[in-house]
Simulated assay, not measured.
Amino acid sequence: MTHRPSLDPVVAAVRLAVRRGLASVPDGSRIVVGLSGGADSLALTAATVFESARRGIRVVAITVDHGLQEGSEDAAEAARDAAEALGAAARVVRVEVRGAGGPEAAARDARYRALRDAARVEGAAAILTGHTLDDQAETVLLGLARGSGAASLQGMAAASDLDGMPLLRPLLTVPRETTRAACAAEGLTPWDDPHNADARFARVRVRERVLPVLEAELGPGVAEALARTAEQLREDAAAFEEMIDETIEDIVEHAEAGIAVSVAALAANPPALRHRIIRHVVAAEFGESLTRVQTLEVARLVTDWAGQGPIDLPACRAARVGGRVVFTAR
């Protein structure tokens, strides 16, 4: 009897996560994997090729070269070669990084645009990225620092939408140490991006300084706890969204150059739901997000009305008109 070598547990863990993540992808389709060459995306690519083979899914690995550092072209080509060696189709896409929000945000936006465009060209059913449990924990901590409420603490969803294209993050339950161990177990050599150790970036400082201090002072498992918190908040947010959908049709009506909400109906709702309705109305009608301060100012038109005038908001203005709060375009 032929002895089959046992599968390394870390490789099995990554493959299982990918198998679950691919559950919504039809057999015989095509998918795009974002491959930076780092341990997370390399382990993701290896597991995705393995899991896709049995279902006739074609894997196309896309490496985005941002051109932000010397040697990025060589690193991108090495990542492409590694993907091809694993059995994936692969290509490098070079992008120009520019825009507001700092280099991190601009690079991220350029990367997602490149992945979206590549997926459309390929006719892909989904895009996969290698975000891990540790990335999720970092995202939650950064959201906490911004102080922008539960929405920023929800972290990244395992499945979301990128301009009409399904975006899957199957490794959100997998620690970073597991992806690196999986690469070692499979004889894969990941690329270590120098930017991942550059303390100019807030995410790097969270990774290298903040999380280790929390682990040392509070005990192990902080990253897992933060990821669980994000998951619970997403569940809460989904429940709120259902409540808003059920409520909003009865309390919102169209007004000239805008939309109006019943004061009595807003007042009858608890603050958390009232504030979400206000934010939802502005986002849906005018495409803008309100800050906490702006939301509370609009809520005062309902709960603390003393004849105050209109409130200027991003792209719109809110005013108390009789028994309604009216939002009009500015």
Rank of each mutant, 00 (worst) to 15 (best):
V64H: 12
S41N: 05
L44V: 03
E84V: 15
V59A: 01
V49A: 06
R55P: 00
R55N: 11
D74F: 05
A47V: 03
A39D: 01
E73C: 08
L86N: 02
R80D: 03
L68Q: 14
A39L: 08
A47I: 04
D65H: 08
L44W: 06
L68W: 06
A46Y: 09
A88H: 05
A88K: 10
R54I: 03
I57V: 15
E51N: 08
D65L: 06
A89G: 11
S41Q: 04
T63S: 13
T63M: 07
A79L: 04
A61E: 06
A76S: 11
E70N: 07
D65W: 07
G87Y: 08
Q69C: 00
G87L: 11
A90G: 06
D81Q: 14
L44E: 10
L42Y: 02
G87S: 10
A88I: 01
A75S: 13
A82N: 06
S52I: 08
G38Y: 03
Q69Y: 14
E70R: 15
Q69T: 10
T63K: 10
L86K: 02
A61R: 05
E84S: 06
G38F: 03
G38S: 09
G67S: 04
D40C: 02
A43F: 07
A82S: 15
R58I: 00
I57T: 09
R58N: 03
I62T: 07
L44P: 00
E73V: 14
A47T: 08
L68V: 13
A85N: 12
A83T: 07
T45P: 00
T45M: 13
L42M: 13
V60P: 00
A88S: 14
E84N: 02
R58A: 10
A46Q: 05
